[in-house]
Design a protein around this nucleic acid. Sequence first.
DNA 1: AGGCGCTGTCATGTC
DNA 2: ACGACATGACAGCGC
Length: 617
Amino acid sequence: MTDIQAPETQHPSQQAMELIDILWRQDVDLGARREVFDYSHRQKEHELQRRREQEEEKKQQRLREEEKALLAQLQLDEETGEYIPRPLPSALPPPTKQSTVTPLEATQNVNFPEGDDSMSFDECMQLLAETFPLVETVEHTSACLDPAVAPDPSSSSSNHILMSAKEPALPQDSLSPAPVIADQRAPEMEQAWMELWSLPELQHCLNLQMEEPTAYLPTSSPEVQDGNYTFYPMSKSTNVGPNPEDACPPTFINTFEEVFPDMVTPEPMMVNSNLDAEGFCETFYPDPVLCAPESGEAHVMEHKESGTLPELPKKPPLNTMDLHSHSPRDALERCKQEAMPELPDSDSGISQNTSPHASSPEKSVYGDGSFGFSDSEVEELDINPGSAESDYSEMFSLNFQPDDFQQNALMVPHTGQSDQQQDKKPKQHKSKPAEDGGQSDGPFTKDKQKRRSEVRLSRDEQRARALQIPFAVDMIINLPVDDFNELMSKHQLNEAQLALVRDIRRRGKNKVAAQNCRKRKMENIVGLEYELDSLKEEKELLQKEKSQTGSSLRKMKQQLSTLYLEVFSMLRDEEGKRYSPSDYSLQQTTDGSVFLVPRTKKTHVGKSKEHKLASAD
DNA sequence: AGGCGCTGTCATGTC
DNA sequence: ACGACATGACAGCGC
């Protein structure tokens, strides 16, 4: 209950989001108030109404088929499985072509189209609306019956209840011509109700009513008298969401199956017997309505329906796109893409084309929001009026003849050139407004670097084209000097053309040179960085070596000092006294002799040292 | 809006 | 002297 009324508070105020909003909310919005305020909702309801009419028509057809199968099997074409048209009493619709004529059928068949493909959807809808006002009302009423109180449709009491439910509503339904007709149709209607009860969609409706049973009781709900109200249950079935139990509690399903066992088997027989069901749906549902999302049990059940219960998108009946692709499969695909990206496919049962033909090739090529113009092309269009013509053509009054130019350019043998430039040539032609009105033929590239270079090159190409230079720009730039001169000599070019060719060649070569220069510069930078790194590593190594050497030196000095003192400690003078290191020092000559030298008296070091050492030894 | 990087182009110098 | 090439400087463009 709460989730039913919640959407009312969330009534969308954004008109732009109406469609999506309604599609996604209608499954929970069971109240009638919303439709009162929601115009789009009412539109949707109209479509549902129409659909219900068609559904009713199908049910009638099925009924007739069953009768026919029992009474007139001769009409069944054993080879094709189709019923052969029977010329008798009533001109029945081609899908089933039955012979049994009931009052209801008579009223139907009077105006019902012969399944003519030439009949437009709107016409069919109009015809159905005119033909089955009562059926619509009856079905609305039935859809609103509380399944808890709805007995077995096969019982006679069911009819009583149904009719009693229907009758109070009819007089108030100004749109319905109905009561008298309904009474006349009573026997057939009972059978029709049996069929109706077996429809999965009705089951969904009843499921919803179980959630709010009183809301659709025909005697108590004012919405019953409103022809618009019936669409909510149906919508609910279409948008149950990922969790089917949200829409159809298991407890109710069980109860429902017990009460209406026929409903739970949504009749594969219908698919078999009604051989033209799909064609019928294709005829009368050329609209994306077939592709509203659904899931869970609703999905499975309605899948068996094979398109008899198309879903309800809020779309205009026929827009440009609909006219473009008129088949329901196309509409189905479109709708699947638009309305249910995350849901499993909507089934509606109409044989869906599972192969994704997302968009037409034209759309994939051009439909990028840019109307076929790439940024570079737009830029070129902006450039066009200025550079080439103003610089050369206007100056020399040259007429541009792209075909001639192209022919000439193609006649000249090409030397190897970058793909980039090769790809640009057709684009250049496209950029000429006089040539094709700016329509792009090639795919839309987003490589801006490439585009930029293309734009740059296109300037010279445009200039060359403007002056009718009979060579390709890449040739002008990349030919060796001798070949280039030979080429120039072969063609009689005027001064402007020669100047342009020279400029093109100069610019092209300078461009390459600049690229090479920058490349070298970058390589130099990289090389210098690498060299810098190497030098840093070398510096670290040298510093490490230096520190190691220093530590080694210090260690050796310390060892020397220790040894020095040890030697001194062992030296004695004549009196047996030690020499003071502060007064004497040990010195070693080149020949290995060691002398004890007084620090203050170095003049006669020689003898005394030798003496001392000798004495020391 | 300004900075930054990329690219084309021009001017100039060198070979 | 001329052409090719190299390079600094500048402008345009896109991010």
